[in-house]
Amino acid sequence: MLELRLVQGGLLKKVLDSLKDLVNDANFDCSATGFSLQAMDSSHVALVALLLRSEGFEHYRCDRNLSLGMNLSNMAKMLKCAGNDDIVTIKADDAADSVTFMFESPNQDKIADFDMKLMDIDSEHLGIPEAEFQAIVRMPSAEFARICKDLSTIGDTVVISVTKEGVKFSTRGDIGTANIVCRHNTSVDKPEEATIIEMEETVSLTFALRYMNSFTKATPLANQVTISLSSDLPVVVEYKVAEMGHIRFYLAPKIEE
């Protein structure tokens, strides 16, 4: 028996909106730790890892570890029917072939339940080693989204370079080139407007902008995004999900042959 009650149901809507374009079908794993997901895009270039810790739910009952295979665009369709302020409860029986999403309006005057068919999904779980990063950039998530969107009008790939000067996002295309440099800046009115660059070593990596733009669908989840870089390793683009967890996108770099 699984029963997860999330008061901030709007968070789940935002989570699905940030996943559904990258991944078609995925297993949601439910354990005492929390509600999690690991999935790759169909070309195995990007990976997403979601964790919503059990403490973040108002009520969290998971009698035994369960894996719920869901089509993410169908799940997003169902969650779209919840109000942004609704309380969302996810329910499933141990041997269930469906999952129930219950939506309660904040003043309890409207209660809806949506039942969605589950599916069997063969997914390989990858072990993600703990890595020391050469550079970690924290910046406003909206700024990062803007940069990715702007650069993708000019080129297909972005070179992200971190040096003492700051973090530089560069692209080139048929019409020309573009470089955007963001400097370390903590003298801001609000902490979420800060850009914090921690650099152990200079690093420069090339990534496909198509994937970066897909990751920025998570922007409504968090004011800040964390970009962790190391030479010849996938970049990690992380958004916090309120106080209860995170969504991490891993993207393999493009490497010169």
Binding site: L47, T157, L233, A252
Partner: peptide
Amino acid sequence: VNQQRQITSFFSKS
């Protein structure tokens, strides 16, 4: 030419 790597070449099956 930059070749797109796959995520599976960095992380192994657990």
